[in-house]
Write a protein that binds this DNA or RNA. Structure first.
Lengths: 194, 194
DNA sequence: TTCATTCTATACCGAACGGTATAAACTGTC
DNA sequence: GACAGTTTATACCGTTCGGTATAGAATGAA
């Protein structure tokens, strides 16, 4: 656990939000488990929502930067997709709870405030991935406007794979090997045969 | 709105859980919006959790029956997968809010009680879909134990497609045409080319 | 020494939470 | 008319919710 109070609060919040969900966790408990009083929590974060926002910012921003880099098309679709999945995998390996939390928030109810907090982030992610398919037009030929469908399908595939891996893997870490990444991308590109 | 009180409560609960999530909705509000007092709600459902359980049962059970039927392998993988997606599509078309709620619960935090309620249902769904790939062994050849990966990938693809369709389609209904279903299954089987 | 920052302890706020008690009605059936 | 099932109105329970007020103490930099 970090010595810095602010950081410790963020980490505790992540643990609890991951385990029980944003709405089911009270500010009181977060403060207690951080070894801090409630006023201290409110000193750093103006509200419970602000706490979530700053959690998303501090942990998500570095990941989005990495991902954007990884999504730059370099002339080969398969290679680019593998790089992208690699970035996701690295991130999920470093911060598995945060990764799973992101997914839960992404699929959570639209009028819940926690969704409001995560929405802009996920839109950026979606756009970055979609840009790969736009850039790969020369390689893929006419996609008939299916870039969005491709990217959504791709994201869905990776997300579910990730979550399942974490669930069935003892929740210790998410480790996706290079071979697995290639198999995943290969399946996406060429189907389940081969 | 149904005249039957029990049914009206279930419908109201679905509306609210869908919109804001299980934890964020109070029993009080459900009762009020159903035109019923709180004791009446507790007369039918012993607890808030019981209400969720019965909601999942009453709406989910018919769907799971249909899906199981649709997942029976009939000698052709593509046809079977299309039938399965068709069953999901029909269900989602009939009861879109419930479908989206199911997905949200499926991805929600593991120690949240709402996940406990939906878990057995999703396990059944997963098993049914996986059975398709096991049955298709003759057609697919040696899958090297990747039946689970295939089924998870397939479910992820369908789920995300469904949710996105609902989100971007004005939330009126989920209509997946036969052509779309075929395209989705085709992409899954043969990749994004062709 | 002054000063802002960081944090404590304690206590409180009004509102909402899930759930229950009580006692009285209304309904249709036997 | 007795009866079970359904529903009401009202009020209450203890607990937790997110958030704040107050006043003081430790810290380190200027």
């Amino acid at each position: 656990m970090p010595v810095d109070n602010r950081e410790r609060i963020l980490e505790t919040a992540l643990d609890l939000f991951y385990a029980r969900g944003y709405d089911a966790v009270g500010v009181q408990e977060i403060a207690e488990k951080s070894g801090v009083t409630k006023p201290t929590l409110y000193y750093y974060f103006k509200s419970k929502y602000g706490l979530l926002e700053q959690l998303l910012e501090s942990r998500g921003e570095p990941f989005l930067k990495d991902l954007r880099q990884a999504c730059v098309y370099r002339g080969d679709l398969k290679e680019t997709l593998c790089t992208a999945v690699g970035a996701v995998s690295d991130f999920a390996g470093r911060d598995p709870k945060f990764a799973v939390l992101l997914v839960a928030l992404f699929y959570s109810a639209r009028d819940n405030e926690s969704y409001r907090a995560v929405r802009p982030m996920m839109l950026r992610l979606q756009k970055d991935v979609e840009s790969i398919f736009h850039a790969a037009a020369s390689e893929l030929g006419n996609m008939h406007g299916r870039q969005r469908q491709f990217s959504l399908g791709f994201i869905g595939l990776v997300i579910l794979y990730l979550v399942m891996k974490y669930e069935t893997g003892g929740r210790e870490c998410i480790d996706i090997s290079g071979d697995e990444i290639e198999a995943l991308v290969h399946q996406f590109m060429h189907g389940i045969y081969s």
